Simulated assay, not measured.
Amino acid sequence: MSLPVASVQLYTLAEQFTADPQGSLDKLAAIGLRNVEAFDFVRQPAEIRAALDASGLAAPTGHAPLLSDELWTPDGSIPTPAPEVVFEAAATIGIQTVIDPFVDPARWLTEEGVTDIAERLNQAAEVAAGFGLTVGYHNHAQEFVASFDGQSAYERFVALTDERVLLELDLFWALTGGQDVPALVRALGPRLVAVHVKDGVVPASNPWAPGAPAFGTDSLDQRRAGTAQVPLAESLHAAADLKYAVIEYDRAPGDVFDDIAASYAFLRDGGFIA
């Protein structure tokens, strides 16, 4: 089994990247990273591609909404362009897999909602194939609130999606959703091509469960990889055919580049990446 390569989700440094795209990417390259995961890339694909090329970086994966009219984040909503527009931008940048990063929690509470999500992503996979691309889904914790006949909404979704639909498991959010994370990694098998490597003290309860208090990223206690509660080493060892170990912080605890460097060192020194 080959080891995954390291990457970093650009949402982690959204403020810095917006202010200075080239300088931010140069700092990531200086840390030792060779890959990033693009975020909010549809508006400026040519500019992002040029900055990546200048830094010697690639973006094999990218996050973009495929399943919603708007992509909700704790810090605001991003309008959803047509899938064809997303895939054309992805191809310009060199992204190979476009990953939907968030679907509204209410849609995960019913079997009909989960079926609709799966069917839409299956359809998106068909459209993406015409551009030579694949699609995937990235979880948070809302996918683990409801269950149907002993299956979590997430497990039902996986069962309903075509095998062409790839999976990116956020290890922190899966733990927040009450999952045995290494066991879930094993169960997903070869469809799991990427994980989000982040650590922290998980919230006391699932923040997307009905009736949960209002949630924002400023409430998160996230820490450098290997220093808190998420079973990162066990989860990475449990993966069958992982291609990307993607460093991410929803809320970096300190200087974002120092925090990224620390998580990269955890992956490198632990022998978790190629």
Score class of each variant (00 low, 15 high):
1 M>S: 15
1 M>T: 08
2 S>H: 14
4 P>A: 06
4 P>W: 02
8 V>W: 00
9 Q>G: 11
9 Q>E: 14
10 L>P: 04
10 L>D: 05
13 L>F: 08
17 F>N: 02
18 T>F: 10
25 L>G: 02
26 D>C: 14
27 K>S: 15
29 A>W: 11
31 I>P: 06
31 I>C: 09
34 R>P: 12
35 N>A: 10
39 F>G: 04
39 F>N: 13
40 D>T: 14
51 A>F: 05
54 A>M: 14
55 S>W: 02
55 S>C: 03
57 L>M: 12
58 A>V: 06
64 A>D: 00
65 P>N: 02
70 E>C: 03
70 E>P: 11
75 D>N: 12
76 G>C: 07
76 G>F: 05
83 P>R: 04
84 E>R: 13
87 F>M: 03
88 E>Y: 04
89 A>M: 01
89 A>P: 08
90 A>E: 04
93 I>C: 00
97 T>Y: 00
100 D>P: 09
102 F>N: 10
105 P>V: 07
106 A>M: 14
109 L>V: 13
110 T>I: 13
111 E>A: 15
112 E>M: 07
113 G>Q: 13
116 D>P: 07
117 I>T: 10
119 E>K: 10
120 R>V: 08
123 Q>E: 15
123 Q>H: 15
124 A>R: 06
126 E>A: 13
127 V>K: 11
132 G>H: 01
134 T>S: 06
136 G>V: 07
137 Y>Q: 07
137 Y>R: 04
138 H>Q: 11
138 H>D: 03
139 N>V: 12
140 H>N: 11
141 A>Q: 08
142 Q>Y: 10
144 F>P: 08
152 S>Y: 07
152 S>Q: 13
153 A>K: 04
154 Y>A: 12
157 F>T: 11
161 T>C: 15
162 D>L: 07
163 E>F: 09
163 E>P: 04
164 R>Q: 15
165 V>F: 03
168 E>Q: 07
168 E>P: 07
172 F>S: 03
174 A>Q: 12
175 L>E: 13
176 T>R: 12
177 G>L: 09
177 G>I: 08
178 G>V: 14
180 D>C: 13
189 G>S: 15
189 G>R: 11
194 A>F: 00
195 V>L: 14
197 V>R: 00
200 G>S: 06
201 V>D: 01
203 P>R: 00
206 N>R: 06
207 P>M: 09
207 P>V: 11
212 A>N: 01
217 T>I: 14
217 T>E: 10
219 S>C: 08
221 D>S: 06
222 Q>D: 07
224 R>K: 09
225 A>E: 01
226 G>M: 06
226 G>N: 08
228 A>L: 05
230 V>P: 02
231 P>N: 06
231 P>D: 10
231 P>C: 13
234 E>G: 10
236 L>I: 07
243 K>C: 01
246 V>Y: 01
249 Y>F: 15
253 P>M: 01
255 D>M: 04
255 D>I: 00
255 D>H: 02
259 D>Y: 02
260 I>C: 12
262 A>H: 04
263 S>E: 10
265 A>H: 00
269 D>S: 10
269 D>P: 08
271 G>S: 06
